[in-house]
Design a protein around this nucleic acid. Structure first.
Lengths: 231, 231, 231, 231
DNA sequence: AATGAATGAGTCTTCATTCAT
DNA sequence: TATGAATGAAGACTCATTCAT
């Protein structure tokens, strides 16, 4: 009774667990069902097909991501630049703690590229276009962006970000930097074994450069750990 | 007789063409063979398996990428900052003109992340680890990086880049920014339909911010198109 | 309250509509329930299973067919030969207007063949043998036949049919001719596109030959449309 | 070496055997492969899918049927009416000895009905329309018909068939009678248990009536068994 | 009578890969 | 080198049917 989680969520949780451990392609719907403690058929009752399930998962990922954005924006006593710095770090944490959600977001971005290109649109699996979750995502994906743009605007207003920067473009730049960072982790770690660039040093350097790129005349209200560390 | 060696190339070219049109998963080895004008069996003579073929393709991608880096570095009359600006634009062109090669590089970066993580390493398809091309790639991937780092060092020396920046970290940052940019194209195009942020405006803004982040006291020797345009 | 019994009919009507549009195999019980405006479960309350439903439908088909036979036999002022001519035309109309009922009758005839053959009986889906409707059908199917035989007997008595014909065999022959005719419609229509044999010409010719086969010394009491037309 | 039957035929033979024993729907492709002594995959190498296999089987059925027609036509010393009588009996034998082939022909006739009707065409399984064998069948199905029409023409010429009959229509009538006959076997056998109409008596009666329907002034060159028996 | 969530057996089909020639 | 017939593991998905409520 009490512990009777909603089946839909049960399935999604099982999917996340298995995708994390084995990847999307290597996970069979039957395994998802088994892990969720239900029958295979019921999985198809709640999700039209594997793609639909993945789109539902992606939706959840965006919702969680939005929460991160919201928490960054709500933080008391932070100026715009500090918010963005915090946000980027949250994104990195998110990519580590919820790798499947994070990957699903990256996958969705690739999807968007195809979706917005007339030549590539046909490459998209029709089952994805069929999914109701996919269409909800088209809207949902904009929400984190809106919050991010607010942070930049806030930073310009409070003087922590250069006034000549255009908020939309600036936010997209920050967002894409965060995404690019994650891609480099492998090579950095690999090479770091023999060079001086440790992942930690790189992260500090990366944030610092980003802040330099953005910052206006007003200094941070309080010294930030990242800013303090030299590299 | 003499020119027999290019069967290998024939296969690779066929693979690129098909992966471009349909994606990796949707392309069957039989199709590759047919497109290359040879038999299915022969494909397996030259490449151990589909993964091996893909690793060979990735190797070629890195070689081409390295050429782009080299061309940027060799350009006469450019200071370090200009080289990096040029490089980033080359990378973007590369992602558009050789989408399969570009995607194979991104895929390899993901692979590197798993490869360098003890927990994730087991997720890598064993056939990949078997591939001789994969192991060559482990070395090869460092080459573009080395060239990029030289550009930063050059920029510091010629004053176009801030002297306090650490070359390795700075290059990685630029490199990851270029990668992140490409990821955002879909959303930007999608949202651009109703907002003021066109893909072109964003690209200009992105480059400008990157340059602001890097630039030292010395101005560009000649005005650059990108710098000139406001956003 | 009073009229509750018609849920059964509701289901049957829904089944007929869907079978007509999509065929038996392509129609799911869930669709039938939805079309009938009731729940899936209730369908199984009224009909044990899909086969049982189909047998019930077949029973209804035989009842309607019997009505056609009865109407033919009851017609005033017609001699036996005219009755049979009329009957054959009714059967053809029936096959066009109630294709599902008609097909269910053909299906039942195939079933009978298996049912009466010791070797083939095992091929019959056990659910069919379980159906109470099937067993009712074993009796019901004889009724149209009885009426048809009466027509032949009547024709012999009134001189419109050759006296040396054996009524049972003659009726079965007429009945099977009517069935065979319908099977040929596809090929005739297909080939008719390039030949002189239109479906209409064929129908007229078919009836004429049948009448020639049956007719005795007494001519039709009134000229019949079919007899009048040459072919 | 010697006993190495062509694989395509091996598969077809296995399919016939299994369809005969269990029916089309109840036979799995895997069983066909096993029975043929090959792997499941090879079945799909030779036949695109189950429908394609069935269409190939139907093609073979029409070829065998055509042989029956040809043999009837070639028979020395027979007039047209005798040929048709012989043909009908061959068809009946065929339906008993090659029930799967026979049923596949009936199935094809149903298919033709849908194929030639704009409203019903969409009900046809797309895999069937895809099958190359289906399209060959559209031509092939006409061949037996052509031979049958020749028989009627021959009968008219030699005086064994009424001269006023139109060959095409007459043949189609005979052909459809043969088909209808087979449909009645079940009911006749069932009812025959308690009535005087045995299957044998019916067959004799049926043929006699058909001959009466067709026959011209010239008597059979030699007495035929069927004609001799009273009913 | 009535509901609809839940079950799970059943099957087609794909395709990377091998191997006899 | 080169072929292409042959293999067989793997997995998504359907739908008739049941049953707790």
């Amino acid at each position: 009774m009490a512990g009777e989680k909603n089946k839909e969520k049960l399935i999604l949780d099982a999917a996340v667990a298995l995708f994390t451990a084995q990847g999307f392609a290597a996970t069979r719907m039957e395994d998802v069902a088994k892990k969720a403690g239900i029958s295979k058929g019921l999985t198809y009752f709640y999700y039209k097909n594997k793609e639909d399930l993945f789109m539902a998962l992606t939706k959840k990922a965006f919702e969680q991501l939005k929460d991160e954005f919201r928490d960054s924006l709500r933080a008391k006593g932070k100026n715009g630049l500090e918010m963005l710095t915090d946000l980027v770090q949250r994104i990195w944490s998110f990519s580590k703690e919820q790798p499947v959600y994070y990957q699903s977001i990256l996958h969705f971005l690739d999807l968007m590229k195809k979706y917005t290109s007339p030549e590539l649109k046909s490459q998209i699996n029709p089952l994805i276009l069929d999914s109701i979750h996919f269409h909800k995502l088209l809207e949902l994906q904009l929400e984190p962006t809106r919050l991010g743009i607010q942070m930049v605007s806030q930073g310009i207003k409070d003087g922590s970000i250069r006034p000549e920067l255009q908020p939309e473009i600036t936010f997209y730049t920050v967002w894409s930097m965060a995404l690019g960072y994650e891609k480099m982790e492998g090579p950095i770690t690999f090479e770091g074994k023999e060079t001086k660039v440790s992942p930690e040093a790189w992260q500090r350097g990366y944030l610092k450069m980003m802040q330099d790129m953005l910052k206006g005349t007003i200094q941070a209200t309080k010294p930030q750990a990242v800013q303090a560390s030299l590299f």
